[in-house]
Design a protein around this nucleic acid. Structure first.
Lengths: 109, 109
DNA sequence: TTGCTATATCGTAATATTGCAATCAAATAT
DNA sequence: ATATTTGATTGCAATATTACGATATAGCAA
């Protein structure tokens, strides 16, 4: 039904899924990589970089902001976006925990 | 439009997004964690563990299989699923690269 | 064979996501 | 004040995802 029955999973599982979903889109990955590469506040040039409409970029930015991965500060007419190191680090740690919890050298079947 | 314009991203970005999307669902996270915890081949008991219908579980398993994260071997009447260590390791490395590419102590805005 | 068990697949309904044009809101410039 | 610029929001249309009942398929048992 396109609806996820989140009530049957643990809070951690839901949080992890939400986190991953935020990053699970090429446009949002591209945005994050651009912000990282620029290593400084990048404002509207994202619209020029990716080939998407301004409204679409704005929407992706909002999604990234809603999970806390990026933050935006108004700077006159434009807005300055950058990675939030704290949340970024938390993501990193959580993913490490998930993927590090499996230590299997060989498939068992 | 619900359609991702994948032609405007790099192959890596698309691959990363596909990878992440496969894991970005609590049911699939739960399945993976169950497979990890059991550390052995787990067959149909997944249907009992999660509160989802058999058809739904089967669908999630197929998605995980389609990205290679798990593999299934037919074992008589039942099918035995387990993590594919090789693909798992690749995922881990890719995510490490993505999240490790940002080394910022402080937000710039 | 017939029946039983375990999974996969099909079809479908409900909901979510993606993308954009149009529009709005706010700051600045003329 | 008016125009311009930048970004957010709204309102769609197209497509994707999630979930499940029903049905298929395949192995095994009696």
């Amino acid at each position: 039904m396109g609806i996820t029955k989140s009530e049957m999973y643990t809070a951690k599982q839901n949080a992890l899924a939400t986190m991953l979903k935020a990053v699970a889109h090429p446009a949002r990955i591209a945005i994050l990589q651009h912000l990282i590469k620029a290593n400084a506040c990048i404002c509207g040039d994202l619209v020029g970089e990716l080939g998407l409409a301004q409204a679409t970029i704005s929407q992706h930015l909002r999604e990234l902001k809603s999970v806390g991965l990026i933050q935006g500060t108004v700077e006159g007419t434009s807005v300055c976006y950058c990675i939030d190191p704290k949340v970024w680090g938390r993501f990193q740690k959580e993913l490490d925990a998930l993927f590090g919890s499996y230590k299997g050298g060989t498939a068992c079947c």
